[in-house]
Amino acid sequence: MKKLTDFEINKKLENLIDWEYYDNALHTDFEFDNFKDCMSAMNRIAFECEALNHHPEWTNIYNTLDITLTTHDADGVTELDFKLASAINTIVEVEEED
């Protein structure tokens, strides 16, 4: 998988709500109503990660979830990171509507 240039990454970020690019990775965080809702979202995200065979660096503290995406094999951000970020946004949107 090809590492994207800073220009390509910043252009793609225009269409990806609530994500930032720094330290050679995509970053976001989400705050949920409670721990249960956060864990539910994490479990749904985990299924998508397995389907894509691409896994985030993430941390959870009570109702917050911090996510970092990068493709270690490419030493930077690739199309796969954007595909997973988009899927994560869709999952979290659905969680918030429940």
Rank of each mutant, 00 (worst) to 15 (best):
D6H: 08
K2C: 04
E31R: 02
I61P: 06
E14T: 06
M1D: 03
I88E: 01
P56C: 06
I9T: 05
C38T: 05
E31I: 04
K11T: 15
D23T: 01
D18T: 10
E97V: 08
T90F: 07
N24S: 00
A25G: 09
N63V: 02
H72P: 07
A25E: 12
E8S: 03
T28L: 03
L84M: 06
S86K: 14
D37T: 02
F47I: 14
W58L: 02
F47T: 10
I17V: 12
I67S: 00
I61G: 10
W58T: 03
N89M: 02
N89Q: 00
A46Q: 09
K12E: 00
L80C: 08
F30W: 13
H54F: 08
K3R: 13
D6Q: 06
I9M: 07
E97S: 11
V92G: 10
K36R: 08
D98N: 09
N24E: 08
I17Y: 14
E96Y: 11
N34D: 15
E93I: 04
I91S: 03
I45G: 01
E50T: 04
N43L: 06
L4D: 12
D66F: 09
Y22C: 04
T64K: 15
H54V: 00
D73G: 00
T59H: 11
I45E: 09
N60F: 07
E8P: 01
D73S: 09
A87M: 12
F30R: 09
D18H: 15
A25P: 03
W19P: 01
K3L: 04
T70S: 01
V94Y: 12
D66K: 13
E57H: 04
K2W: 05
N24Y: 05
L69C: 05
E20Y: 08
A46K: 09
D6Y: 11
N63C: 01
I91L: 00
E8F: 02
L16N: 08
D33F: 12
H54N: 00
T64E: 15
N10I: 02
E95M: 08
I91P: 03
E93P: 02
M39E: 14
K83L: 10
L26I: 09
F82P: 06
A51N: 11
N15W: 07
G76I: 10
D23E: 09
C49P: 03
T90Q: 10
N60I: 08
L84T: 06
E95A: 05
H72E: 13
L26F: 04
H27I: 05
E50A: 02
N15T: 06
T64C: 10
F30Y: 15
W58F: 05
A74Q: 11
F47L: 15
T5E: 13
D81Q: 06
E20R: 08
A51R: 14
A74F: 13
A51D: 12
L84S: 03
N63T: 00
A87F: 11
L69A: 04
E93A: 00
N15K: 11
N53G: 03
E50K: 07
E14I: 11
F7E: 11
E20I: 05
I91M: 10
W58H: 01
F7M: 01
L4Q: 12
K11R: 13
N10G: 00
V92C: 13
L65D: 13
N43I: 07
W19L: 06
A41N: 06
S40A: 13
D23R: 01
